[in-house]
Nucleic acid binder design. Structure first.
Lengths: 332, 332
DNA sequence: GTGAAAGCGCTAACAG
DNA sequence: CTGTTAGCGCTTTCAC
């Protein structure tokens, strides 16, 4: 339990005042080239690094960013976290991770905690839309994936082009000749899923076909099992369909396994397109055609915007749509 | 940007000194039932919550725990993080996540940052064994999964019973009649993988068979592709085998897809057992038999131990081995 | 160019 | 039981 070396020690060692050391550290000017060198050398020699708590207390700023995410075990979110955290770390920030498990109550408490810890900013990855965020201290924030419901104005929001994704997915199957395409989605109709649905409808219109409304199926849970059970139900109820657009790769996989278990051939009899391009879609026995979201770009942009907000810079655009692409594999 | 209410405001409002408010907040006694009620009421009324920075600076303690993990997108690690974070949050701690990407250099820098931020403790999930951790301030730490190489003595370490897992896996296949079982593992021979290997050998011995040394294959990378390529190579080189024990579910899946792509029937011709029981093993088209690690228990125990360490309590045991179990599915 | 000093919000002696 | 006070490590006026 060795004592940490503080700015005072450095000052004494360098024969200057703490003020000067502070100036040198923060590059605030008003010191001679000579002292700068000396102070820097001593700092290095003694492996000194400033105590973030003292600094934070004084400046009322920490170098910590809160990141709120509904489910860290979801690979798609995990990859966003990874990107965000990587970029943040490079910029000298640390990341406080808050896993809300899609639980509004938990999410609310996390926001309090982030506030207590005086985070410099927040990145919301797909929060639950039903939560009204209270953000009294006006902490800068960037939202990703789902349009938030918050008391804040001037929301900075990033999402993939979900509409285009939905359109591409349906188009791919329509091109292959499908005419009865099931759309498996989230019954909560979050903004992202809603847009995908609209893209799905648009594609149909472009092909001059009117999608059966009953083919748009809202699941109460986004999971393998939910999709599996639903598809089994469809088959057993003798519903005729020749394509499934699953608004998540896990749903696509659930569908695929359900079909295969009933002896239905994919892609010969039924085609499938997923969404997100998580690794499972590539590595299952029948690799799934899916829509890729550019996670890297998302993470970079989010961090870039957040840091600008923190620095009080003006942001030219508040709303960003990132391009998606169709990844063609074996289910179409 | 409303001004935060501080302990001073509460003191003034309640007509007491800040010291008294502090005592009430921390339950340090030495105040009357009467003042306690009043202070608590005012706190609630004004929605006050103490500034963690001031507190941390003063006590030289934060309520933050650093969690170092090699790959957050690995579902197994993500689940541990989830559990750890959940339990930590309940106990009033926040979690600083450090994703090292198995990069020793990055890991080192993360340790510095954790130190700068004066975390109260650290949980290491499977760090890279080649890194010598420097932990000058003696921050309490709990290690999980891989035995660390650190300057610290008195390491608190938790792992699954990897030996038993390896034994169960091999035993399962031997029971099914397999006699030529490939073991796909990490060439770096981390403690966990090493133990699984020993279990694998033990099981063979119990069945009176001597495993071919060439069947123990160290992969330079733990991924679907690595396993896929290796198994393809084995098949093309005409190596005869009737079972694969993959020390990770992703390796098992890669093996499975490789076999199927060559028209080899699983489990009829070759049996497979994986490790970790991540969701992919359950949900692929041929569900994979695997060894389950009890992630929930791991997370709980890790947090429990860490909090004890932080509170300066003595820990009776330094080394914990958690039971594993065979989850029988369709590949055996 | 540099230093002295105030103070960020909080806790912990110490004195009463 | 309660208040006064010193100071945690740092930044930032303000003077010189």
């Amino acid at each position: 339990m060795k004592k940490q070396v503080t700015i005072k020690d450095i000052a004494k060692l360098a024969g200057v005042s703490v003020a000067t050391v502070s100036r040198v550290i923060n590059g605030n000017g008003r010191y001679s080239k000579d002292t700068e060198e000396r102070v820097l050398r001593i700092i290095k020699e003694h492996n000194y690094s400033p105590n973030m708590l003292g600094k934070g207390l004084r400046t009322n700023k920490t170098n910590t960013i809160g990141i709120v995410v509904p489910d860290i075990t979801n690979e798609f979110f995990a990859r966003i976290i990874q990107e965000v955290e990587k970029n943040l770390f490079r910029a000298g920030y640390t990341t406080l991770v808050c896993n809300t498990s899609e639980n509004p109550e938990l999410e609310k408490r996390y926001l309090e905690v982030l506030n207590l810890n005086r985070v410099s900013g927040t990145i919301y990855i797909a929060g639950d839309t039903r939560v009204k965020h209270e953000e009294p201290r006006g902490i800068p924030a960037v939202y990703i994936d789902r349009w938030p419901s918050t008391t804040r104005k001037d929301i900075v929001f990033i999402e993939s082009d979900n509409f285009e994704g939905g359109r591409l997915a349906a188009q791919e199957m329509l091109k292959c000749g499908c005419r009865r395409i099931i759309f498996l989605t989230d019954e909560r109709r979050t903004s992202a899923h809603q847009s995908r649905c609209e893209g799905y409808i648009r594609a149909h219109r472009e092909f001059g076909v009117v999608p059966d409304e009953r083919f748009i199926i809202g699941l109460s849970e986004i999971s393998f099992d939910a999709a599996y059970n639903e598809v089994i139900r469809l088959i057993d109820n003798n519903v005729k369909f020749d394509g499934i657009f699953a608004s998540t790769d896990w749903l696509a996989l659930g569908s695929l396994v359900a079909l295969e278990s009933r002896g239905i051939k994919v892609p010969e009899q039924v085609k499938i397109v997923g969404f997100d391009n998580i690794s499972i879609s590539k590595h299952c026995s029948t690799p799934i055609t899916t829509i890729n979201q550019n996670v890297t770009q998302m993470g970079e942009l989010a961090v870039d915007l957040l840091l600008k907000l923190i620095d009080g810079k003006e942001i030219d655009k508040k709303y960003y749509v990132l391009p998606v692409e169709l990844v063609k594999r074996s289910t179409t």
